[in-house]
Write a protein that binds this DNA or RNA. Structure first.
Length: 204
DNA sequence: CCACGGATTGGCT
DNA sequence: GCCAATCCGTGGA
């Protein structure tokens, strides 16, 4: 089974595509984190693209800084940032080195390790469906359930313990493309993608 | 050096 | 629906 995993891990060439292509194609893929003796995995159901070359909402819009430098690396690693004094958000870096483009993982549907996610998020197992939905229906919540923090910035997505598995391509009519959430600038870009009718999407 | 605001969340009206 | 919490990075009021 170690082997079937290996075959399905998204290759470097997936991540070096354009940020919008990666964003749309990440929908339905399986984000996996292996922790000692356990696996946490979830299907990606909502993402947003950020492109520092034309996008004022991107952290990379004003050039390279200490904080955003990982987002300027070649595609295929994580860029994790801390926001509002409380939350981490995980991004998949895309494209070539020095482009400053990434895809924010906004929501996912738990598959494996649900009790472990609940411990990470609430300190105990889920008590009801509301809590189950609340595990991963937002970018900060996803990171909390997966135990992702600043220390995971720069992690290679082709590594042993964190990677994304391929999955069947979603039919076009299941993909909704709309404006991004929570930003004040460059609001007009339709760079948010989510899976239609999926209960884990953060907002309709 | 320091003031300001943020790719969010959760609790309260 | 509205708003406070909370703190770090950024840029210059």
């Amino acid at each position: 089974m170690e082997h079937s995993f290996q075959k399905n891990i998204l290759p470097k060439s997936f991540y070096t595509q354009s940020v919008l292509t990666v964003a749309e194609n990440l929908l339905g893929k399986i984000f996996v984190r292996k922790i000692t003796n356990s696996i946490i995995s979830a299907k990606i159901v909502e993402v947003e693209a950020y492109d520092g070359s034309i996008d004022e909402a991107a952290h990379t819009y004003r050039g390279k800084t200490q904080r955003n430098k990982l987002m300027f690396e070649e595609g295929g690693i994580l860029y994790v940032y801390f926001i509002y004094g409380n939350h981490y958000c995980a991004n998949v870096v895309t494209g070539n080195k020095n482009e400053g483009k990434a895809v924010l993982i906004r929501a996912a549907e738990p598959i494996e390790g649900i009790d472990r996610m609940a411990i990470n998020r609430f300190g105990r197992k889920c008590l009801n469906r509301k809590e189950y939905i609340n595990l991963t229906n937002g970018p900060g919540k996803f990171c909390k359930s997966f135990g992702i923090n600043k220390s995971h910035g720069g992690v290679d997505l082709l590594s042993e313990n964190i990677f994304i598995l391929n999955n069947d391509k979603l039919p076009k009519d299941k993909i909704i493309k709309t404006t991004r959430i929570g930003i004040t600038r460059s609001k007009e870009f339709n760079w948010r993608f989510y899976i239609k009718d999926n209960p884990f999407v953060s907002k309709p």
